[in-house]
């Protein structure tokens, strides 16, 4: 591989990894609080269409991203109301949220099909963002840097702050947290809303950065890869970062290898890779003595305080 190829390939990997990372980071916090939200794909689509619609109307991409965060968080709030307040089954409600998101985004986006907006590209001066070499550092959308900052922030929050400790306590032992006076439902609501907002940014990354347009099911199943990534990473932010870039690298390098004229594996295998890797990791961690200790103990369990 020649040097001239290296930079564009690295940049493509970052582009493929960032939205998965953003969505997975949100879901990681949600799952750490003991809630399993399978609606990531639906929330991403709601974010993607909202971000696009607001950007197309106002001309401001940052405004679009903020609107997307609000819209996706609102859909997550609906999920929260059903599963936390009404204690509905989380798996069924999450799947319903995905189906709802697919339909709602298609309906809302009807009038925006075929329109385009400017790419939400680099904010650095062109001398840096279009420099043949330095663009590998400066040539991205602000959302890329935001995703990296958020990984650090979430990692710090979960392991170094009191609020993060409470969130983990709620996810590991809801009854204990409840009995010493923490609001389990309240904490979980906050986590679910955060997960929604993150999925919203991830959706925007498709409709504003990678492919600046709106079309039905624009995210094409990336939400499911984000869900797999959380398990793959063992619910740890730094591993999540590595996993996202690994998934992105495998997807990108396979395309480049094939374009260069040799194929490493069948494309079908590649498409299944994130899920296969996740199954392998699941098998590995459950084979260990400590078992599934990485997964929050109360994951997916509805909490009903017996007051």
């Amino acid at each position: 591989m020649t040097y001239s190829l290296l930079i564009p390939i690295l940049m493509t990997i970052v582009g493929a990894a960032t939205p998965i990372l953003l969505a997975a980071l949100g879901e990681l916090v949600v799952e750490k609080s003991g809630v399993l939200n399978l609606g990531v794909e639906g929330m991403m689509l709601i974010g993607a269409v909202t971000g696009f619609a607001v950007t197309a109307t106002t001309g401001s991409a940052p405004l679009g991203v903020i609107a997307a965060m609000i819209a996706s968080a609102a859909s997550a709030g609906l999920f929260g109301f059903l599963t936390l307040t009404l204690t509905a089954n989380q798996v069924a409600t999450g799947l319903a949220l995905t189906i709802f998101g697919i339909g709602l985004s298609a309906l809302a986006g009807e009038g925006y099909v075929g329109q385009t907006v400017d790419v939400f590209g680099s904010v650095f001066p062109a001398s840096l963002s279009e420099h043949p070499t330095l663009r590998v550092i400066f040539g991205y959308s602000p959302l890329v840097y935001l995703s990296l900052a958020l990984v650090a922030a979430v990692g710090w929050f979960l392991s170094r702050t009191r609020a993060g400790l409470i969130l983990r306590a709620v996810g590991e032992s809801d009854l204990s947290a409840h009995s010493i006076g923490y609001s389990v439902i309240g904490v979980r609501y906050m986590a679910v809303l955060f997960g929604g907002a993150m999925a919203g940014i991830a959706g925007c990354f498709y409709s504003l950065v990678l492919t600046p347009m709106w079309a039905e099911q624009l995210t094409a199943g990336r939400g499911w890869i984000a869900l797999a990534l959380v398990v793959f990473a063992g619910w740890r932010p730094v591993r999540l970062l590595l996993g996202a870039y690994l998934f992105g690298a495998v997807m990108t390098l396979e395309l480049h290898a094939k374009a260069a004229g040799f194929s490493l594996v069948a494309p079908e295998f590649l498409a299944a890779m994130p899920y296969l890797a996740t199954i392998a990791v699941l098998a590995a961690i459950s084979a260990r003595k400590t078992g599934m200790s990485l997964a929050p103990a109360c994951l997916g369990k509805p909490f009903k305080p017996s007051s």
Partner: peptide, 27 residues
């Protein structure tokens, strides 16, 4: 003609990445 199979009829992000890969290979 360099052909790149993406195993999908519709996957915008992957189609964009495939285009980039093909362009980087001289198309």
């Amino acid at each position: 003609t360099k052909v790149l199979w993406v195993s999908s009829w519709y996957d915008p992000a992957k189609e964009a990445d495939a285009a980039k890969a093909l362009i980087d290979q001289g198309a």
